[in-house]
């Protein structure tokens, strides 16, 4: 039986995510080089109508399974395992998102296909798939060569452009019975984002604080700068986890994706989970004491200094500027 490359499409509340199109784009590229068919996989009832957006794939498999509405990792893995018995594949691309966390390791355990996490680049060199993965908060990259190009690869969101994965072509679709998976974890309900005082996705200017702000007592420095710039304060995960700012102000993987005109990253190292949420900003200025902080790789301007020292001076300078007109 001819094998192929599978892209597992991800949908949240009836909408395909950007990561799906990123995977289709890179999947198309490598499928062409390796001369393999590319199939997109839609999980569960209700998602079948989304197939027409997946034209970058040669065909679409819709897995009919009752429990796949808000699927758990083991249910997704079970459905794909069943699919593989009918439609063998060598390479499987899955999204490196919160929804899919756990799918790769479980699927790997059940199929004995190797699993590779945190993949940010995928290239074919002499017919071999070379994966580049980001480790240690983006500070180190690892290149992995998959034996026989066989494996399950978790694609880090935002690693590829979604545009090549979008197509107007209507692909052939096939419904595949994968059976009802007995999952012990049951989805009860969605909990909507807390309505915050400020919607950070609507702000032109964001002053973002990270660990470098050191304590809640220093937050006012960022607030003052945000006021001077007519913007709002947001934060990376560590600040939110400390309870210094509400969840509604979080930028990154679990938080918001923001694209302001100006993003000032203060004391933020720039782990992939954070840059995923802000690298689309028009102008990024970062201040961090670590000259090797990955945040500088996505910034337009960088300052290697202590934020606590620069912050008040910057606010002061802005105020003076305003007075001068």
């Amino acid at each position: 039986m001819k094998t192929g490359i599978l892209v597992i499409a991800e949908q949240l509340r009836g909408k395909l995510t950007d990561t799906t199109f990123e995977m289709l784009g890179i999947g198309r590229e490598i499928a062409t080089v390796l001369e393999l068919p590319l199939h997109a996989v839609l999980l569960g009832k209700g998602s079948a109508s989304l197939f027409s957006q997946l034209g970058a794939a040669d065909s679409v498999f819709v897995l009919d399974g009752a429990s796949l509405e808000m699927p758990t990792a083991d249910a997704i893995a079970a459905s794909i395992t069943n699919l593989l018995n009918k439609k063998p594949a060598t390479l499987i691309l899955i999204p490196g998102t919160n929804i899919f966390l756990g799918v790769g390791p479980i699927l790997s355990g059940r199929t004995e296909m190797p699993f590779v996490n945190f993949c940010k680049d995928l290239q074919i060199k002499d017919h071999a798939a070379i994966l580049t993965c980001q480790l240690f908060g983006g500070k180190i990259f690892a290149d992995i060569r998959l034996p026989e190009n066989r494996g399950i690869v978790s694609i880090y969101p935002g690693s590829f452009s979604p545009e090549p994965g979008r197509s107007g072509r209507v692909p052939p679709v096939e419904t595949i019975e994968v059976g009802r998976e007995e999952t012990k974890v049951t989805f009860k309900r969605f909990i909507e984002p807390e309505a915050g005082d400020v919607n950070i996705t609507q702000q032109d200017v964001l002053v973002a604080v990270g660990r470098g702000i050191q304590s809640q007592d220093n937050l006012h420095l960022a607030e003052e700068l945000a006021t001077a710039l007519g913007g709002a304060v947001c934060a990376s995960r560590p600040v939110i986890d400390q309870g210094w700012l509400p969840l509604s102000r979080q930028v990154g993987k679990s938080g918001m994706i923001v694209k302001p005109k100006l993003y000032l990253a203060l004391g933020i190292s720039g782990a992939p989970e954070h840059t995923e949420g802000m690298k689309g900003a028009q102008l990024i200025i970062s201040i961090n004491t670590d000259p090797k902080a990955p945040i500088f790789n996505v910034s337009h301007y960088g300052v290697c200094q202590d934020v606590l020292e620069i912050l008040p001076l910057l606010t002061e300078e802005l105020k003076t500027q305003k007075v001068r007109g």
């Binding site: 998102t97 309900r189 969605f190 909507e192």
Partner: peptide
């Protein structure tokens, strides 16, 4: 999940 959306299981 993402964007502040959470699920109860």
């Amino acid at each position: 999940f993402a964007g502040g959306l959470r699920g109860e299981f």
